[in-house]
Each structure stands twice: as structure tokens, then as C-alpha cells.
Design a protein around this nucleic acid. Structure first.
Length: 305
DNA sequence: CACGCCTCCTGTGCGC
DNA sequence: TGCGCACAGGAGGCGT
């Protein structure tokens, strides 16, 4: 999925477009096990801003009285993306009178782009918010791993467990090397599993975990990371995430920005997706394995246990 | 509690 | 060309 750099890039595109916009109406996926909840609460409210914590986007909502007490929480899962499109002109073919109550979601059977349907029309739309500037925010998510929910502002416990326990932002002062080293020392799980866990540090996923471990020369399965290596990893995480944000993230397969463009960090990947290719540092063939149920690529020479 | 495995989904790319 | 299978950037839930 989109990790911190991808989510931050999406945030930077969305924030100026959504800030101050009022939500006129909302449609969302009627799928039984949908991970979209309480979106009806959006209607009539203003999106005050778009913030980010880890891989989550947070939009404070203004009620009519001006107090902010609800928040829209967005997570892109593995395949989520947003689009802003013009509000379609009222369709002449539409049955008069009916059809008003539930906006026919643009999600039809995905295969039948038959009869006249625009082949470029967005597919897999799971939610759409009509905004007061006659544009529509579409949330697309083929695999349905993404989440959208409206919650009382800041109250994540019991609703969004990972967000409730989220670790420090890696690019902020809250990400302290001493605490990071201590947390790594206090665990017996493979270091990569701890990076993916989100409690030690927020926003690192499979791509940037592999990248940071390669840069810090730490074997992803290592269960013992001392202070020295912890400090190297701390620095590597910051460097990798900063460089990826500068290039608007990595598009390996699904990730797209709001304008449909790809992230350009893919060209700079040193580890992720480099299986069997020569290590960019020492030339040894990169090796692929599975750690924490995730595909993992590392250099067997540079990154020894 | 910490850890590790399984699951939720759909699409794609590969090998046969 | 067609089919089946493995795999995909995340997180939640459950068993040990």
C-alpha cells in the first residue's frame, strides 16, 4: 500500500482542494463487509483541513456551530486512491422523480464497460463525496482494504486500533533515537516486523522497511539490534522517507496520486523489488525471502545477521 | 503481553 | 490462447 511518502504526497494534493469545502452528499459502497463507516455524518459538514499521521489522513470536520468535534479518517489500504472530478451534469435519461435517494454509485460491474460507458471512467469507486464547488471526491479501492470512517475527533481507541497506538512521526522530533533503540532492544521479533508494526515508528511499510534496512546494513530478520545499529536505522528511515517524499513516493503497481500520476522514487529503490539484481553497494546478488509474512529483499553480504 | 499466523479482497503476471 | 496459481505496497483478529 501507500506508505508514509505516498500518503503525504496525496495529502499535499488533497489539502488545498478540500480545505474549507462543504460535503453536500455522500454515497458509499453497500458491500456487506465494507470498511467504510458512519459516512452519513459527513453531510453538511465542512472539511477543515487534511492532516496526516503515519499512513492515515485525518480531516477535522466543522459542524454548523463552528466547533470541530468529528473527524474523517482515511486509510488507503493497499490499493486506495482518490480522484477529484467535475460533478456530472444531470443525466437526461435519468428516471424522473426516483433515483434521488441513493445516488447510484459509479461502481457498476467492473468488466462491462459496454454500451457507451466512458472507458476512462473511474472503476472500483467505493465512495464519492459531492462537494459544494460542484466537484466530486472519488475514493477508488479495488481490493477494499482501505478505510473511511467518521469518528469523534481524536478518539481512536476501540475504533481504529493502529491509529490509537501509533508511534512517533519519523520526520518529527518525536522520533527520538534513544527511545527507538530502547524499543528495538526490548523485543525479540525480527527488526523488520517491528518496523511494520506502526507502534515503534509510524508510516513505514514493506517498501521503506526494506530500503531503510538495506541502507543501515541490517539483516531484516535480525532480532538483536544494538544502539549503534539502531542509530543507523533511525537515520536511514529518515533519509529514505525524506527522499521518497521529494519524489512523491513509489509507484510499484497500484499507487497513484490524485492527478493520476506515479511516484518517481521507484527509480531509486535499492532493495525493494531488486531480487536477483546486483546490490548497488557491493554487487552481490540480492536475495528474496519472507519475513513477517511479507516479501523481503536484502543483500546477503551487506546485511549480515 | 508479545509474537506469529491467517484472513479480508481483487487484479495481474507468470509458468505450463 | 487459456488456465491455475502465487503474489501484491496493510492491518485486524485470534491462538499460543
Amino acid at each position: 500500500m501507500p506508505e508514509l511518502p505516498e500518503v503525504e504526497s496525496v495529502r499535499r494534493q488533497l489539502a488545498p482542494e478540500l480545505r474549507g469545502r462543504r460535503v453536500v452528499s455522500v454515497w458509499w459502497d453497500p458491500y456487506p463487509r465494507t470498511r467504510l463507516s458512519d459516512l452519513h455524518l459527513l453531510e453538511g459538514r465542512r472539511l477543515e483541513d487534511v492532516h496526516r499521521r503515519g499512513k492515515y489522513l485525518l480531516c477535522p470536520l466543522s459542524p454548523p456551530d463552528g466547533r470541530t468535534d468529528l473527524e474523517l479518517v482515511l486509510h488507503l489500504g493497499m490499493t486506495g486512491s482518490f480522484r477529484l472530478v467535475p460533478l456530472p451534469a444531470p443525466d437526461a435519461h435519468e428516471e424522473p422523480g426516483s433515483g434521488a435517494d441513493d445516488e447510484p454509485g459509479p461502481d457498476r460491474a467492473d468488466e462491462d464497460a459496454a454500451d457507451g460507458a466512458d472507458p476512462d471512467a473511474p472503476t472500483h469507486v467505493r465512495a464519492s463525496l459531492v462537494l459544494d464547488d460542484d466537484r466530486v471526491l472519488l475514493f477508488r479501492d479495488p481490493r477494499r482494504f482501505g478505510r473511511m470512517s467518521v469518528v469523534p475527533a481524536g478518539e481512536y481507541r476501540g475504533r481504529i486500533p493502529t491509529l490509537a497506538q501509533l508511534g512517533p512521526e519519523p520526520l518529527s522530533d518525536a522520533f527520538e533515537v534513544g527511545r527507538f533503540a530502547a524499543a528495538l532492544a526490548a523485543t525479540s521479533a525480527p527488526v523488520k516486523a517491528k518496523l511494520l508494526d506502526q507502534r515503534l515508528v509510524a508510516g513505514v511499510g514493506n517498501i521503506y522497511a526494506d530500503e531503510a534496512l538495506w541502507r543501515a546494513r541490517i539483516h531484516p530478520a535480525s532480532r538483536r539490534v544494538g544502539r549503534r545499529r539502531a542509530a543507523a536505522l533511525h537515520r536511514a528511515i529518515r533519509e529514505v522517507l525524506t527522499a521518497a517524499i521529494e519524489r512523491e513516493g513509489t509507484t510499484f503497481r497500484d499507487y497513484q496520486m490524485v492527478n493520476g500520476q506515479s511516484g518517481r522514487y521507484v527509480d531509486l529503490l535499492d532493495a525493494y523489488g531488486q531480487g536477483d539484481l546486483p546490490c548497488r553497494r557491493c554487487g552481490t546478488a540480492m536475495r528474496r525471502t519472507v519475513i513477517a509474512q511479507r516479501g523481503t529483499t536484502y543483500c546477503p553480504l551487506c546485511q549480515r545477521p
